[in-house]
Design a protein around this nucleic acid. Sequence first.
DNA 1: CTGTTAGCGCGTTCAT
DNA 2: ATGAACGCGCTAACAG
Lengths: 337, 337
Amino acid sequence: MAVTIRDVARRAGVSAMTVSRVLNGQPRVAEATRRRVEAAVAELGYVPNSLARGLGGRTRTVGVIVPDIANSFFALLVQGLEETAWRAGRHVILCNTHGDLVRERGHVEDLLSFRVEGVVIAPVSDRSSPEIARLVRDGVPFVVVDRTVPGRQSDLVLGDGVAGAMQLVDHLLSLGHRRIAIVTEPADVSTTRDRIAGYRHALEAAGLPFEPALVVEASAIEPGKTRAAALALLSRASPPTAVVAINNVAAVGVAEAARELGVPIPERLSLVCFDDLVEASKLQPFLTVLAQPAETFGTIAMQLLLDRLGGRVQEPSRTVILPGELVVRSSAAPPAG
Amino acid sequence: MAVTIRDVARRAGVSAMTVSRVLNGQPRVAEATRRRVEAAVAELGYVPNSLARGLGGRTRTVGVIVPDIANSFFALLVQGLEETAWRAGRHVILCNTHGDLVRERGHVEDLLSFRVEGVVIAPVSDRSSPEIARLVRDGVPFVVVDRTVPGRQSDLVLGDGVAGAMQLVDHLLSLGHRRIAIVTEPADVSTTRDRIAGYRHALEAAGLPFEPALVVEASAIEPGKTRAAALALLSRASPPTAVVAINNVAAVGVAEAARELGVPIPERLSLVCFDDLVEASKLQPFLTVLAQPAETFGTIAMQLLLDRLGGRVQEPSRTVILPGELVVRSSAAPPAG
DNA sequence: CTGTTAGCGCGTTCAT
DNA sequence: ATGAACGCGCTAACAG
């Protein structure tokens, strides 16, 4: 069916070996022969079989595992990853876990079976550890992004959750807020813990108590949960005057709940969050955020992986912490009354 | 290095063939043998080599080519594609073209070289035709989404650009607008033409002239172009009272330009567009849009492809037109004065 | 029920 | 400068 290297060889009147040499740009081929082969390749529309190639050598393929490609943070991340991989002649096998550990495990196995040269993974949670272990065991280089996994040494690309949360909280404090809640995700994700830690630290540094009752758990996977949590939070007897949302999904949930309850933002509730909503912000600058360079997360993560594939790395592991940027818009204002 | 089927065979005291049979769940294997093999597989952490498998048979791999993964429409599309592929035991090789024909061509070749079983492509433009031809020639099944390509018969999943634009324009007309512009993209994309056609048709049906001067070309690839075009449009002596943006990117560009010029929306300019900005709309319901079921585009496109791979399709090609939904929010209002 | 043979398409020896 | 032979890991086809 498909045309093989032998078909090309026959057509050009040479051996398969010579065709292979031409294809791989090896030196010891007569110019005339090279031309004939190239002509044959073009005429036959020959495309080398990457599988056969990969069987013996490198597959020029990398795996990418993310929890939610529809989330703009991860979409941008993937964009950066794909772009960088492509520039290096690699292709990306994309795996979406939907935050499901079982699916993540399956995807790791599958990527292994495709003999990807490496993997970039934004793990589901701390419990992704066994999946990661699989990669270590098989000696497949990998880079972890956005969240860490306990007990695994690896290249890492992260945002600074502690510093970011502090900036956000400090901003709210400077506006005069004293009752600041945080709407989080499950604490088995390192990013969540870091951000909560920063939130707490900023509060305490300002001489304010850390009140566990103001830490409310939402979920990017179950949108209903976020809405319910936010609704409950805002309906309390003494609701917070400001909310730090742990990411854009949570922020959207809080905004929806506030609207539902007729609580205007920022007049009666200030709202800030991690991750910019790029399109929304251009449409109507509104949300005050700690913007993270999502696409850069991707380009750097892939670059770290490529470095390792190229064998030009001595360190056992490298960590890159990308600073976020506080972008002040109008969703946070001084508290009422 | 990696453990092979032979290692497993040795460990289980059987032949490679028997291991293969167990792995593929074939019937003619003694229960006891099966257990031993399964044990060996587990102990060795064996993962079958998909490349070797693919060399002889199916690769369980499909290619996905989109112009811009960072655009929420395509991110959702990809989400639908990946999810459906995964359910069918297939993996996705993701290719982002950035609207670049050269890159698209390269990607098609690469996907062919990986021997993907099929391809889902949102082509760059009409000029993607030769790339598509390549797929036809190699007999690789494919589905075209979101935009057509001239002269190519294939499965197709599209929105209804004509009807959608008519709904949008009718909405503006019903609000009393008579001077309605459309900010488009290059006309070598079928989707653009369809939407312009619908815009024109709705205008003429209302007895209004179609004025070429009110058709302004922007670009999702070059953001600067959109801004410049919108700026020029709104600065005219007699500017439009309403704008139909051909997609979310264009809408954002128009909103930015309006803000820059101090033109409030919807008070002095009504703005509507194709494609919802889901997060933005939940955050603050604002933009009146013709929402398209982006993720469904993906699930259906992949389903069409899988049907074809399964050989359970007789028709040479099938077309699915997905209706959009007019979602009225607050970015369009009756014209001033 | 299980093993042997052969070949998928390519690159890597080692010759010539 | 070019070619022949072998092997990568797996499975279909054919024994036994």
